[in-house]
């Protein structure tokens, strides 16, 4: 049995199950789900959409 792990869009690190990470659809295209881990969110690191290359926040 394999478990799918979500990857942080900012740092590329796999997100652990009980970590207070968030996910939301890409604000620009809406097709890709963006994941942000707790550390990246606290530091205000930028994320990039894989499809439309939108850079946020």
């Amino acid at each position: 049995m394999s478990i799918k792990r979500n990857i942080c869009s900012c740092c590329g690190r796999p997100i652990t199950p009980y970590e207070p990470a968030i996910h939301f659809p890409c604000p620009n295209c809406g097709d890709v789900t963006i994941w942000r881990c707790e550390a990246c969110r606290e530091r205000g690191k930028s994320y990039r959409c894989l499809k439309c290359e939108f850079v946020g926040p």
Partner: peptide, 9 residues
């Protein structure tokens, strides 16, 4: 302002 904790500015 700083971007700490903000997901879209």
């Amino acid at each position: 302002d700083s971007l700490k904790g903000i997901d879209l500015a």
